[in-house]
């Protein structure tokens, strides 16, 4: 029999402090969290279960890859009970974290390849963990292209990085677009899949990563298919309702997969083997 005293209780969150809050848009904030005790190791693509004690838990993808061993960022849209309360919290307040959970972007397999990121709205958040990672290990990858769009200029997240940091990194292109130009927007106008088609990126030695609203993902996947990106080099992340994060509570089940254990990262090839229930 197992010595249960030696098994960690997987439902017990670790306490972290909110170190910094960045208002990204009207309803999206990025929270930099630091663990009070212990290390934190994760890879791009993973998520955590965030606790706001007394309100509940919500699965949130890690939107950063920060050198060091005990901090992370979560970019959170004010949506339900947990996230609304989180938005009212201040720097120095405490939250709980469980994880990291889930699989990761295929960081080893994509070494030496060009990376194409296609994000929409807050969908840039999980991609940003891999963007950070690839800039940290810049020489491991070829050309990095980022296509990102939101409804209006006010809905763009990570503006400082998008406009002033990422595009200045060598061999990196950043294309920003909005559905509707407001506030004197001078940049591109048009939905993300349209901009993707116009840019016409080559699938040669390139892996595409896409995350955003379902409708954007759908048309982006079609566009990538038209551009001859192979299904195994087209990567996306799935969203399902989750509670436990560790494959017990049953609700993120699609076919024989649990999104919390076997996802959230899937290639288009893997997605095609799943029942269409996501």
């Amino acid at each position: 029999m197992n010595n249960l005293n030696q098994i960690q209780n997987p439902y017990l969150p670790r306490i972290a402090s909110i170190e910094k809050i960045t208002q990204e848009t009207g309803d999206i904030k990025t929270f930099r969290l630091v663990f009070l005790e212990g290390d934190f190791h994760h890879l791009p693509g993973q998520f955590v279960e965030l606790s706001v004690f007394g309100r509940g838990e919500a699965p949130i993808s890690i939107s950063s890859f920060i050198p060091g061993e005990n901090s992370l960022e979560l970019s959170v849209k004010k949506m339900g009970k947990v996230t609304s309360y989180l938005h009212s919290m201040c720097e120095g307040d405490k939250v709980g974290l469980r994880g990291p959970y889930g699989n990761t972007f295929p960081v080893e397999r994509i070494k030496g390849q060009n990376l194409l990121f296609i994000g929409g709205g807050i969908g840039l958040a999980p991609l940003r963990s891999l963007i950070h990672y690839s800039f940290l290990k810049r020489d491991d990858f070829g050309k990095i292209s980022i296509i990102y769009g939101a409804r209006t200029p006010a809905d763009l997240v990570f503006k400082e990085e998008l406009f002033n940091i990422w595009s200045n990194i060598k061999n990196t292109e950043v294309h920003i677009t909005v559905d509707v130009a407001t506030n004197g927007w001078q940049g591109k106008v048009g939905v993300v899949p349209k901009i993707l088609k116009e840019l016409n990126p080559s699938p040669d030695n390139t892996v595409a990563f896409t995350c955003g609203p379902p409708i954007m993902i759908k048309y982006s996947l079609e566009a990538l298919n038209d551009l001859n990106f192979p299904e195994e080099d087209t990567v996306t992340t799935l969203e399902m309702k989750m509670k436990c994060g560790i494959g017990k509570c049953g609700r993120c089940n699609i076919g024989n997969k649990y999104i919390c254990l076997d996802g959230p990262v899937f290639t288009l090839k893997e997605l095609k083997n799943l029942p269409k229930e996501y």
């Binding site: 439902y11 606790s51 309100r55 509940g56 838990e57 017990k248 509570c249 049953g250 609700r251």
Partner: peptide, 24 residues
Amino acid sequence: CHCFDIADELAKNEGRRFRCWDSC
């Protein structure tokens, strides 16, 4: 069938997190 929900119960000084049966 083992599917469950997890939720918090808020009380004045002491709350609790619990799980309870749920259904697909």
